[in-house]
């Protein structure tokens, strides 16, 4: 049942729990229990909203920063990652295989703000060897959701 709940709420976390129970064909209390347990076990780590900020008219700048680091003795990459992810400006940090070590996703109000974070906070960290900042120009799809406007139902409305 966990997997079914997760598959469903991954796409629609706002569904009414009573409805979710109906759709899954189980008791509402069972759904509530599972959800609470999965939150406690940190299987469910949060509920977020996918927003097209462009439409709000609010400027937001997002950058994906490739970071190369020297892992710290005894701590590996985790300690370095922690120093980076503790900044609230940092949206996401991934350890990456390939040409660099971390992919850091950063959100700021302006290009300047993002650039400043990189030069003032990220680069000076002892273990950081180099950074490469890629600004995001346009978001097409996020969390499995296409950002472009909803498509209309073009089916013929009565078909036997």
């Amino acid at each position: 049942m966990r997997e079914k709940i997760l598959t469903f709420i991954e796409k629609n976390s706002r569904i009414d729990l009573k409805e979710l129970a109906i759709v899954l064909g189980v008791e509402e209390s069972a759904v509530i229990n599972e959800l609470e347990q999965m939150e406690a076990e940190h299987i469910i780590c949060g509920y977020h909203t996918i927003i097209d900020w462009d439409k709000v008219g609010q400027d937001k700048v997002m950058a994906m920063i490739e970071v190369r680091v020297t892992p710290q003795r005894g701590m590996g990459f985790d300690k370095v990652a922690e120093r980076i992810y503790n900044y609230p400006e940092v949206n996401a940090v991934y350890l990456i295989s390939g040409g660099f070590d971390f992919m850091v996703i950063l959100e700021g109000k302006t290009l300047r703000e993002v650039a400043q974070f990189v030069s003032d906070k990220l680069s000076p960290l002892d273990s950081v060897l180099s950074t490469k900042t890629n600004f995001i120009l346009k978001k097409y799809k996020d969390h499995g959701t296409v950002i472009a406007s909803k498509t209309k139902d073009e089916r013929i409305q009565m078909i036997p």
Binding site: D153, R155, I156, Q157, M158, I159, P160
Partner: peptide
């Protein structure tokens, strides 16, 4: 609202 469609959405 039509619920008269006989094909997948």
């Amino acid at each position: 609202i039509s619920l008269g469609v006989g094909e997948p959405d």
